[in-house]
Design a protein around this nucleic acid. Structure first.
Lengths: 195, 195
DNA sequence: CCTACCGATCGGTAGG
DNA sequence: CCTACCGATCGGTAGG
């Protein structure tokens, strides 16, 4: 009956949960921990959310959606493969930087999703990875990248680097997300490029 | 009283636990799950191990020790910075490939260590990372690597790539660990090197 | 390695 | 958002 206030409170719950899941992991985070963080009783959480896993679902699928939108923007552009790859990397970093906490949960805790959510999530992820792989393949086909590179290794190295960023990136530091994306892209792409 | 048999059984327990921790995560793995995997009662596990966390401690510190030994071998060698870095990467990959399950646990579950083990573990890790960082700094000083690279970014990208390897590397495939290490090194180092 | 069991804690519901 | 509570499960111990 108070949709705005409820929404806002619900978001507070989800954001607090994200912090908790990031720090302790999903399985080791209890609803009582979460309630305490918010200054309420555990039972009261269920006025705002359906279940513990419901929170994880929101976090994982909202992030997945942001990544998808970012990539679609890049794919529309009329650019060379290496420029698209570069923009894809920058976009990914920017999406993560907007919410490092949710990004860390997305990366480390998605495996605690139950079926069919887990399957859906993994399908989204493999689709996303394959679209980056296509950019690399395009780059090889167009003569921008070395034809000898192992495509699976290249794309997995790329994703490893991207996905670990929430572990060490300091948003208070003087490297802004766009710069980080450019530097990372530079380091990886110039490793792929013919010199 | 039967040290050999006990040791072997203890190792079976630890290896089964590693598989379980890798699949479900440490916190979501119960001692009853583990006992079932071994065909015994949960209470019987405690004849072989001290506690659930004791298993995690063995797994994490044994792996840390393997990594340390591998790096010490490399540091002894009289080679250029880029060759040392290459050998360090190959060594790291080889250590992981010897036990991908323990490697995955080492990487993803160490945060469930309690104090003071967690602190000790993190000190070992930062030390290991800093020694790789020194190789990169040496390479810059000796003119082998671009002076413009961000050292923190470079070393973090390196470790991201290394640490995610257990997530996607297929030991049944036709890429042997040494080759993988060389390819990975090639991809990363050639991205750093002056061309 | 087992039976029997412990106190603590879990996610969640009923009913206000 | 609270009180009161539920059945299930947790890591671990006693005693054999």
């Amino acid at each position: 009956m108070e949709p705005v206030a409820n929404l806002s409170r619900k978001e507070q719950v989800i954001r607090s949960a994200a912090q908790l899941f990031r720090e302790k992991g999903y399985a080791a985070s209890s609803m009582r921990d979460l309630a305490q963080k918010l200054g309420i009783e555990a039972a009261s959480l269920y006025s705002h959310i359906k279940s513990k896993e419901g929170i994880l679902q929101s976090l994982c699928f909202d992030m997945a959606n942001e990544f998808r939108k970012s990539l679609e923007e890049v794919e529309k552009q009329k650019l060379s493969a290496s420029e698209k790859l570069r923009n894809g990397i920058i976009g990914h970093i920017q999406v993560m930087a907007k919410d490092l906490t949710a990004s860390a949960v997305f990366m480390n805790e998605h495996r605690h999703l139950s079926q069919p959510y887990l399957r859906d999530f993994l399908l989204l992820r493999i689709n996303y990875i394959n679209r980056f792989k296509s950019m690399i393949e395009d780059g090889i086909r167009m003569g921008e990248f070395k034809p000898t590179i192992d495509k699976k290794l290249a794309v997995m190295t790329l994703f490893s680097s991207l996905n670990w960023m929430p572990m060490w990136y300091d948003p208070e530091g003087d490297v802004v997300p766009t710069d980080l994306g450019e530097q990372l892209s530079d380091m990886l792409v110039n490793g792929l490029k013919k010199n």
